[in-house]
């Protein structure tokens, strides 16, 4: 009697183990909004500590740049006597989706233009002010501030029409092996996302959190700075920030992350 009872209990226990095991062991983690189909934000590859830094807008040091961008938004500069606010009024409303559509085809130069360049275009043409230097604190602050207004909105850059040839160029760049290590972007971020490269966990290389606060940089940096870093890592000569090559790549990378929410300013290691 006692024995039979024990056996029944053991069986139940075994059945329970069978039921729970596949869920715990093999089912993929639910990343909620940070995953769209098989596309995963860099957030899902970051350490818990890094993620909680991003989750708390106060602990996220990138908000120093957001604050500075907000100040610059209403600062009158240039001969036209205008600030961003003069035309675009309330950034929270007017810039709601601005962060999601760049890089975008520009009819004037007949090539792609990213958000940084769009901001500088406004400065030189509409404000008659001096363009900010790429990677300068001012341009980073404004880009971060503008893209922050689109936080939560899905990435949605157009790759058809006029943008199509640039998208193809970007795709080619992405898959092209380069540098002494003879590696393409794809080799790490598609073939080996989720695997370790020495001590670093490789992510899919998504751009939805940029400009991002990188702990390694100890400051906010642009996506093109990240591209340069990646290119240097494979011992290739990097292109200039804001170059056509990187703009094309930015479009391809934006497409790879289509639908992922803008996380600017994200925190990454």
């Amino acid at each position: 009697m006692h024995n039979a009872k024990a056996r029944v209990l053991a069986l139940i226990g075994f059945a329970l183990t069978l039921l729970t095991m596949p869920i715990g062991a093999s089912a993929a983690e639910d990343w909620g909004k940070y995953q769209v189909d098989d596309r995963r934000s860099g957030y899902t590859y970051a350490a818990q500590e890094t993620r909680s830094m991003q989750d708390d807008n106060f602990a996220n040091p990138a908000f120093i740049w957001v604050d500075q961008g907000e100040t610059l938004w209403s600062k009158v500069e240039g001969e036209a006597g205008k600030s961003c606010q003069s035309c675009h009024t309330d950034a929270a409303k007017t810039m709601k989706t601005a962060g999601t559509v760049y890089p975008k085809y520009d009819f004037k130069t007949k090539k792609l233009m990213n958000l940084e360049q769009r901001i500088n275009r406004c400065r030189t043409e509409n404000m008659k002010a001096k363009a900010w230097k790429y990677e300068s604190n001012e341009l980073l602050s404004m880009t971060t501030y503008v893209r922050f207004q689109s936080r939560g909105e899905p990435m949605n850059a157009a790759i058809d029409g006029n943008a199509a040839p640039f998208f193809e160029e970007g795709k080619k760049f992405y898959n092209q092996r380069r540098g002494q290590l003879d590696m393409s972007c794809k080799n790490c971020h598609e073939d080996n996302a989720g695997n370790m490269a020495r001590a670093n966990l490789l992510s899919q290389g998504q751009g939805n959190g940029f400009p991002t606060y990188r702990l390694k940089w100890q400051k906010v940096g642009s996506l093109h700075r990240r591209f340069r870093g990646c290119n240097k890592n494979v011992r290739a000569a990097p292109y200039k920030s804001g170059s056509d090559e990187y703009n094309n790549l930015e479009l391809y990378v934006a497409w790879r992350g289509r639908g992922l929410p803008i996380e600017t300013p994200a925190v990454r290691n």
């Binding site: 106060f58 908000f63 120093i64 604050d67 500075q68 604190n137």
Partner: peptide
Amino acid sequence: MAKARVKT
């Protein structure tokens, strides 16, 4: 640009 932020 040292700027302090405090939350209480």
